[in-house]
Nucleic acid binder design. Structure first.
Lengths: 188, 188
DNA sequence: GTCTATAAATCGATAGAC
DNA sequence: GTCTATCGATTTATAGAC
């Protein structure tokens, strides 16, 4: 089989893993679940990934690329406060999915921390890059407490996502999103 | 064996479960892990709990009682804003444990959501009672947006706990705790 | 390269001796 | 009531046919 086809199957597995791991969690998800979602025979998974951990790592990488692509579209907006508010609105738009399964990045970080392997460091890297970008926006707004504000914004979202998921209440994310937009306006 | 002794062993198992489930997560924790921590033979666990789920539920109840006892001590403080700030300081004091394993309630809520069983509703109840109490404090401060403020405070803490855990950085919780104390002062 | 069959390990749960 | 031994189901991972 050609390299392009092999890459396609690898990516299909990684992409399906992102979705299924978000829905079911890492521990509850079997390789059979991911293989089925990717329409690949179970035993064949091991040709592309030596262990389950390597497949999870590929899913983290795929998720990181999705996040980078989102940030890239935000970069097109001229003002940093508009970029941050657009990020917020994107999170609010995902409220139904968040109510069902939580924030993909946050629940992954929480779950991978409990595993002995080093996969939690990979998610921490994804989270760190997002935090850096948010801090960069606050810095562009002339704030010298940019990092602290970035932590506050990201924490507010992560916590809101957790409560939205816990109470299965998408409206909670809407209310919190509006409040955070007003907060950003006061900082400009 | 007497009822009191039996109750003692049941409680020892539930108490050990609270600790071990926080450290290792629900899925990674085996009944053997909990039995060892409680100094009870593995097979004997099933005399006290018919299934693993029932043991997890007992752990949630035990955790709920710990939280209620904490809230009861806060009730002794005269002013509602002092009660909230004391709650915050308690969270900050737990920062090292949080950096290692996250917030016990939050990580439990996140993990149990991914399981098919109904245990996530039990944690949601614990979280709801805490949220109600916080909202009650804001209401006593004369705020008619008490519920929204309570969601904001609890979400800020849950998000800060998640980031503290993800980055393994207790200082993050300290900084965020100070910021939230200042925020409460502006609302009084 | 692809897939089936199965080994190997883990863990929840039960049977039954004491 | 307490504990050991073990079953049965699930899941990761591998061997090997095609």
């Amino acid at each position: 089989m050609t390299d392009s086809k092999r890459a396609g199957k690898r990516e299909r597995l990684a992409g399906a893993a992102v979705r299924v791991l978000h829905e079911q969690g890492v521990e509850k998800t079997t390789l059979a679940d991911i293989a089925r979602a990717a329409d690949v025979p179970v035993g064949n998974v091991y040709y592309y990934f030596k262990t389950k951990d390597q497949l999870v790592e590929a899913a983290i990488d795929a998720h990181a690329r999705e996040l980078e692509s989102l940030v890239a579209t935000l970069e097109r907006l001229p003002a940093p406060q508009e970029r941050l508010k657009a990020l917020l609105r994107g999170w609010v738009e995902q409220r139904d999915l968040t109510a069902r399964h939580g924030c993909p990045t946050g629940s992954l970080a929480s779950e991978l921390d409990k595993r002995g392997d080093g996969l939690d460091r990979a998610v921490a890297g994804v989270m760190a890059r997002l935090l850096d970008w948010v801090a960069g926006q606050f810095a562009a707004m002339g704030r010298d407490d940019a990092r602290e504000l970035a932590v506050a914004l990201l924490a507010a979202y992560q916590g809101a996502a957790l409560l939205t998921n816990t109470f299965r209440d998408p409206a909670l994310m809407e209310t919190e999103g509006r409040r955070l937009e007003r907060w950003i306006d006061t900082l400009a």
